[in-house]
């Protein structure tokens, strides 16, 4: 049994008085795809955004619990947010490339804190776009505005932009919900390839998608974690009645 890369324990989150997360414990092992499922408003995206501290941007949010990433508490006061976010990167629901060229998009993270040479940059950008499985589609148009590509291509450019800064963990917040089935399939294939190098945590509304690509699945309901475990087991023989009801479409 490999030890977990990221362990979260007893995570509570309050929007003012409202408790949005009520004690979540999930561990994530390296080189796995972990799905977070549950009905809308159950807190799964909120939980995901705790993991790279994107919730810090919202005023009036209070977060408690421990988040142990490679032996460090990511909410410790001396944690460098910039480094944290390059190690735990995020892909959003809506493809959000910058309105720049594909090249500048992928180069963005690389240019933030260092000044790589042109050849080094070219090499890293090509590598990132190849890993995100979008290289063949954009290699002749690297100077074209990223917004001019299709939604699925934009989303993979966003994945490439993230891969370029070599994170350990990739958080994906419903990355295919704004895409058509074919583009979604391409994203899923990309994620399967990335599993060998990265740890992936994906929030999804699409149960088939979770069962197709993930190794572990966590089911959340009303801010509580109902059940977490191997995807193969959870989808076939869930322990809890709520999980079974949700998977069978009785609510949600």
């Amino acid at each position: 049994m490999t030890s977990a890369l990221l362990e979260t324990e007893n995570v509570h989150l309050y929007y003012g008085e409202k408790e949005a997360l009520k004690g979540i414990n999930i561990d994530f092992k390296p080189n796995t795809i972990n799905a977070l499922i549950g009905p809308s408003g159950c807190g799964k995206s909120t939980y995901l955004r705790c993991l790279n501290r994107m919730n810090d941007l919202i005023s009036g949010v209070k977060i408690t619990g421990t988040f142990n990433f490679k032996g460090t508490d990511i909410y410790a006061p001396d944690v460098n947010l910039v480094t944290l976010r390059t190690e735990i990167g995020m892909v959003f629901q809506q493809p959000n490339p910058f309105p720049f060229s594909v090249y500048d998009n992928v180069a963005y993270g690389l240019r933030l804190n260092q000044h790589p040479s042109k050849t080094e940059l070219d090499e890293k950008i090509e590598k990132a776009l190849k890993k995100a499985a979008v290289w063949d589609e954009v290699k002749d148009d690297l100077n074209k505005n990223a917004m001019a590509f299709s939604g699925g291509q934009q989303q993979r450019i966003c994945i490439a932009r993230l891969l370029a800064v070599s994170p350990d963990i990739i958080l994906l917040d419903e990355p295919t919900s704004a895409l058509d089935p074919i583009s979604s399939g391409e994203i899923e294939a990309t994620l399967m390839q990335l599993k060998s190098t990265y740890t992936i945590i994906i929030v999804t509304h699409n149960l088939q998608q979770a069962s197709r690509i993930s190794d572990t699945t966590s089911f959340m309901l009303n801010g509580e974690l109902i059940e977490t475990g191997q995807t193969s087991k959870l989808f076939v023989t869930p322990d809890k009645q709520e999980t079974s009801d949700y998977l069978n479409g009785k609510f949600g």
């Binding site: 910039v82 309105p99 240019r111 932009r161």
Partner: peptide
């Protein structure tokens, strides 16, 4: 300038000032 560009930049490890200078002003 859409909010999601700010999130994208911050999530890539940019500071607020880098986000303003390199993304928001440019966009």
């Amino acid at each position: 300038v859409p909010m999601y560009l700010r999130s994208a930049s911050l999530a890539l490890g940019a500071t607020r000032w880098q986000t303003i200078r390199k993304v928001i002003l440019r966009a």
